[in-house]
Design a protein around this nucleic acid. Sequence first.
DNA 1: TTGTAGGCGTTATCAA
DNA 2: TTGATAACGCCTACAA
Lengths: 362, 362
Amino acid sequence: MPKKVRRTRMAGRVSKAPSIYDVAREARVSVFTVSAVINKTGRVSATLGRRVEAAIHKLNYRPNLLARSLAKQQTHTLGMVVTDIANPFFPAIVRAAEDAAQKAGYSVLLCNSDDKQDKEAVYLELLLSKRVDGIILNKTPAPLSVAQRRMLDEAKAPIVLLMRTCPGLKTDVVQTDDRQGAIDAIAHLARIGHKRIAFVSGPLNVSNARARRQGYRKALEAFGLEYDPELTFEGDYRIESGHRAGLALLPHRPDAVLVTNYLMTVGFMSAADEIGMRCPEDFGLVSFDDYPWLGCFRPRLTTIELPKYELGDTAVRLLLERIQGKRTHPVTVTLLPQLRVRESCGFMLHSRREPVAVGENS
Amino acid sequence: MPKKVRRTRMAGRVSKAPSIYDVAREARVSVFTVSAVINKTGRVSATLGRRVEAAIHKLNYRPNLLARSLAKQQTHTLGMVVTDIANPFFPAIVRAAEDAAQKAGYSVLLCNSDDKQDKEAVYLELLLSKRVDGIILNKTPAPLSVAQRRMLDEAKAPIVLLMRTCPGLKTDVVQTDDRQGAIDAIAHLARIGHKRIAFVSGPLNVSNARARRQGYRKALEAFGLEYDPELTFEGDYRIESGHRAGLALLPHRPDAVLVTNYLMTVGFMSAADEIGMRCPEDFGLVSFDDYPWLGCFRPRLTTIELPKYELGDTAVRLLLERIQGKRTHPVTVTLLPQLRVRESCGFMLHSRREPVAVGENS
DNA sequence: TTGTAGGCGTTATCAA
DNA sequence: TTGATAACGCCTACAA
């Protein structure tokens, strides 16, 4: 005698999406067989296989990945928290991450923390509640609370830190060699004859901002140039702070300046405009970040390019290694930046001195 | 006599995330009570309420949104398919969409179709399998296959088309008034004295590219200017095609040109560089899209700005209206572009004639 | 090879 | 107000 019928669903009413049971009934097989066919797991006879395929096609069946995720305890979804996708630094990284994820059968849930601690906290919690398999985190400078630490520990979701390390978070890290990037920039400026080199840093509670400043100091020293605090400005990686930096630094008449990201460079240049100083005639400038659209506007920026696509790609690679259990020990990947010499540094004006390695010109 | 124990899970072993049953046991109540407390639905006595809260806190319980989604038949997740997040046009839109979604308690699953029909198809299918509650679609020019049409019909997930309409897809649309934008651009160029005005369009199988071309033709006519096919070039919205456009059009010595997106403008300008023609001295230029970083590089572009943030925001608003059943009739929102006069159009050089409305200068 | 039935972690419907 | 208990749709031992 038949057991209690599992579902009472009125066939044909309000047409809900067909389930694996509907397919099984249509093909006159069990759900196991259907599942086996779909996942190509276990041997299924050719006859039943065909019947199942036919039923799937007839009903236009599409597996409910929600249910599958619940059953298998994995969502094939990655969380990605960046400070702001509208900052032109991130789109290429996100694109790369999404590409890599997609290739491996994963999706990306995108979140913007706006560099705010509370938004970041909310998003991390949300991602864990959604049971993402892993998280790529461009961390806010705020340290983790104990509650957060506990949360991340208990959830088994691995984390990869992107561009910013976090004291006390022992996880994988993908970053660029920011210290070296700054050194390359200053070395270039020094070699073409600049002496008084100003510096616009990012917020110094962010690891990469500190690294860039270290490189600046180190390179000054190496070239026997004096460090002058008045030629230094701490910004926050946004346009407006670059503008303030320009207003603050340019009156001191530096020979050149290293601005450590693109948005601040934009602000810096507009400040120069207002003051009536021109680049590279009145001051040389090297910026961080490079973009394909910079080549055809003046002044053409000399930049320290950070390998954005590779950053996103690597982040996903590391995350998947962890998720798939191929590696258990945390690893730090540090990618090399690349000096691209154009005109803003004053190369064309000043350097009749010694040859300098010139990066590929975009 | 107690029925079969529901779970045999060894407490404390391999610590899986606690479930609502664990909380119920800890608080010595039923799962219903826990659920009621969590969702603030149904009256729960203060005593039990406190017990539950305590248990939740003690176990550090976090609801599994996967399971909730499965039970409630809604994921609180939106799919967003754009052609390429690395195209600077999209980040602000995505940012806006994510902001709006987050505010309403929704997350965003981001996909890049790369403007390829097959990737788009795969993503749409994936999103439906993941049971997203709705989809924002920046559609590939390819028409929907019958299978796709059927798929989208059967899934009840509403769709909002972004910037590109699709013949036969009767859904909500958010777009800009591209025809008017082109008209404004040409009108401006004509008023300051340009006669031979060239035009670089996007791919004409894309609706907004056609609209921009219509505006171009219409405005030429309105100003009594001759339409010369030799001054027209069909690009694909990418840098390289803008470059080809420049090489093709500039030798015909147009007075000015309207390039219908930013990336093509970049290519166009570099072609001008190579040819040795300067903007705005040798030709005036108006571009579509504006960016905060354009103000401080030369030449400063005169642009038709498209309200990117509002596009993303509106897309989510329309989608949520549909999801929440507040509206059942498809609606089209057309946002107004805005002319921003700077220098690339040649305004400063040519116009001693009549006053022109000047847009806010970024 | 195929089927049965229990579990994944919620919500929701009934009774009690 | 609470508590059992059946969905939700899938996977997967374990049986047959």
